[in-house]
Amino acid sequence: MPTDGSKYAESAAETGFDIAEKTGATVHALSVGDESLTHISSVGGPPPKTTEDVAEIAAEWADELADDAKAYGLEAEAVVRTGSPAREIADYADEVDAEMIVMGTAGRGGFERMVVGSVTDKVVRTAPVPVVTVRPDGTVDAA
């Protein structure tokens, strides 16, 4: 279950926890420190984040999701990667022989989404396993 700390990831987590409970699955709370953010800066804005910065933020999100899963009574582990989120999510699912990926359909957005495209869309197209997507209204789709 990938997370970017957004309300969309939290909504997807509820669905993921239900699926994990019914199937006895372990929750892999995966957060990817987006290395593209280490190159973004704006005039008069803060300097770009370092790889360590994005990894630290990702670790907080992964730990929070894993803690929520454990509170739900599930076996869970927090996992942190750095790189391109969609690629890292698909690669991790392949490495651990995941049975499925559960994720929200929206997360970090705005200008970044227009430039690099939706992470969820990329995961749906490249993942080696089925992807269950959860819309902001809680509607569930499978791809």
Rank of each mutant, 00 (worst) to 15 (best):
M1N: 04
D4H: 05
D4R: 02
D4E: 10
G5L: 00
G5P: 05
S6G: 04
S6P: 05
S6W: 05
S6D: 02
S6E: 05
K7L: 02
K7I: 00
K7D: 06
Y8R: 04
Y8M: 06
E10G: 02
S11K: 14
S11D: 00
A13T: 03
A13Y: 04
E14M: 02
F17Q: 00
F17P: 02
F17Y: 12
D18Y: 02
D18I: 01
D18K: 13
I19Y: 12
A20G: 08
K22M: 05
K22Q: 15
G24H: 03
A25M: 03
A25V: 04
T26G: 02
H28T: 11
H28N: 12
A29M: 02
L30I: 01
S31H: 06
V32G: 07
V32I: 14
V32D: 07
V32Q: 10
G33C: 06
E35I: 11
L37F: 15
I40R: 06
S41Y: 15
V43R: 06
P47W: 00
P47T: 00
P48E: 09
P48R: 11
K49W: 11
T50F: 08
T51F: 01
T51E: 14
E52T: 13
E52F: 01
E52M: 10
A55I: 00
I57C: 00
I57Y: 12
A58P: 14
A59I: 02
E60V: 06
E60M: 03
W61A: 08
W61S: 09
W61V: 01
E64M: 00
L65D: 01
L65K: 00
A66Q: 00
A69D: 03
A69N: 04
A69C: 03
K70E: 14
A71H: 07
Y72R: 10
G73M: 03
L74T: 07
E75K: 10
E75D: 15
A76Y: 03
E77H: 06
V79N: 06
V80T: 13
V80Y: 02
R81S: 01
G83R: 06
S84P: 11
S84Y: 15
P85R: 09
A86Y: 14
A86V: 05
R87P: 06
I89H: 05
I89N: 07
D91P: 05
A93R: 03
D94W: 08
D94N: 11
V96C: 06
V96T: 13
V96I: 13
D97T: 13
D97A: 08
E99H: 15
E99M: 08
E99G: 15
E99V: 10
M100Q: 08
I101W: 10
V102M: 12
V102T: 06
M103W: 08
T105H: 10
A106S: 09
G107W: 00
G110E: 11
E112G: 13
R113P: 09
M114H: 14
M114W: 12
V115Y: 08
S118Q: 11
V119H: 08
V119C: 07
V124Y: 11
V124F: 07
T126P: 13
T126M: 13
A127F: 10
A127Q: 14
P128C: 00
P128W: 12
P130E: 09
V132Q: 13
V132Y: 09
D137L: 12
T139L: 07
V140N: 09
V140S: 14
V140I: 14
D141N: 14
A142K: 10
A143N: 15
